[in-house]
Design a protein around this nucleic acid. Structure first.
Lengths: 248, 248
DNA sequence: TAAATAGTGTCTATGAGACATTATGTA
DNA sequence: TACATAATGTCTCATAGACACTATTTA
């Protein structure tokens, strides 16, 4: 009976074929009360010319003492490569793993999809970079209203990315009701109307301003958000108070 | 510029090393008001002799026209192999993908964890089979009370399986509040006290029988559950009415 | 001053927690 | 009949929806 050490020393990889594993990213932001997602235009086959989610391969090592990068690290790395933003400034979470055979016509690819939330003050930096990233923000407002499929007939997404995008939208719609993810879609200081616009963009429905206010009045009493100095000036109408989210 | 067809014809797999992909299963049942999970005793290295979650490799094909089985199909297959039950009788859902480098000391393995819910009338069949499956039900009642780590010091689980198990428990604790998963943990006909025992086992807290009853009175009015003929006889005390869940 | 938007107050319906009370079976 | 458990009823409080009203800014 070998010891565990001996077993590992003699272990050889089996000869079964292995899949490739990728991470795909559904990167959201809210600009002008409008939910947007970052998509790239594919330059090569397959699905050449189609819009697609940003993503890439998980780097795998075959050395005994280096198995490569964590899947979560691959997601962070891709996020930084695609947006130019440090992952520390972005909310990033694993979404779901899409592992249907044939979802990539080239070979067996299993995708661990993630979603990310970009604050609107950082969103313009993503598309204003000089480098070769051809990523653009695309509005989801048309889709959110009709609850239709996310495949616009005129411009369907590559691979199963419409399915992934729909899954991500469904996830944040559910999660915003019980987790403070809306604060990752407003600037560090924000007004209650701005926060409400995030909820309305994600849920695709309007909220009563008064009742929405009351909902966050409790968070002020809790100490989860606090009033910040200054007001939002410049627009028409009464300026709104400014708040800051205190991450627990 | 090649067409997509030409591109695919000329496509060759890159020479990057690929990971192995497995599915691991967190299989729950509730017996005698007690949440239980199905674990196997590992017979070989690594972690020989330790308890572990059932699981296995996703079968991957390298032929152009056969990329192997879907990840979800692999989970169903493993579920049937480990339990002997048809997957159609079991609730099965993807949980999370665990892709940390080094989580398997042999080589890079990415695990797409799933969880399953077995009705208590089927649970005895899982462990009463003649074949070589050395799976056993293990109670989680000790762990649920103290909210401690799931690694019992005396018998820690193999790999990162304690982490996976904790993630699954956390998931069903949240999901039972808004999805009808409790009905997958009672027989086809059940009493309200039986259903309440499932909630109490999963949440690790007790429910007021009266308020719990009111909560499901609405489902009777909705038509999501209906009264079934007969009563639960045999025990002491007043026999309880029997209900049936009408899957929407 | 008018328009626009921010913020407050109030009425009501619904649902949950706590707990007393009644009903129906078995030993 | 005593006991155990199922089922019902009630009181109270917290919260959400609807909506009327007040406050503060700009044009």
């Amino acid at each position: 009976m070998p010891t565990e050490k001996q077993f590992l020393a003699e272990y050889r990889n089996s000869d079964h074929p292995s899949p490739s594993v990728t991470v795909d990213l559904v990167i959201f932001t809210v600009q002008d009360a409008d939910l947007k997602v970052l998509l790239i235009r594919r330059l090569s086959h397959p699905f050449q010319g189609r819009l697609a989610l940003p993503g890439g391969f998980v780097r795998v090592g075959d050395a005994y003492d280096d198995q490569g990068e964590d899947v979560s690290a691959a997601a962070r790395r891709e996020l930084e490569e695609e947006t130019g933003l440090p992952a520390s400034e972005v909310y990033l979470e694993q979404l779901y793993t899409f592992g249907e055979a044939g979802r990539d016509p080239r070979k067996r690819v299993i995708s661990v999809a993630h979603y990310a939330l970009i604050r609107p003050d950082l969103a313009p930096m993503v598309t204003a970079r000089g480098d070769a990233s051809n990523a653009q923000w695309h509005s989801l407002s048309l889709l959110a209203e009709g609850e239709q499929t996310l495949d616009l007939p005129a411009d369907p997404l590559a691979f199963d990315h419409a399915h992934i995008l729909w899954t991500a939208l469904f996830r944040i719609r559910g999660k915003i009701d019980y987790a403070p993810i809306a604060f990752d879609l407003v600037p560090a200081t924000f007004t209650l109307p701005e926060l409400r616009a995030v909820y309305e963009a994600i849920k695709g429905e309007s909220y009563d301003p008064s009742n929405f206010r009351r909902r966050f009045k409790r968070m002020i009493e809790d100490g989860t958000i606090e009033q910040a100095p200054g007001k939002r000036v410049g627009g028409v109408g009464r300026p709104a108070r400014v708040y800051r989210f205190l991450r627990p």
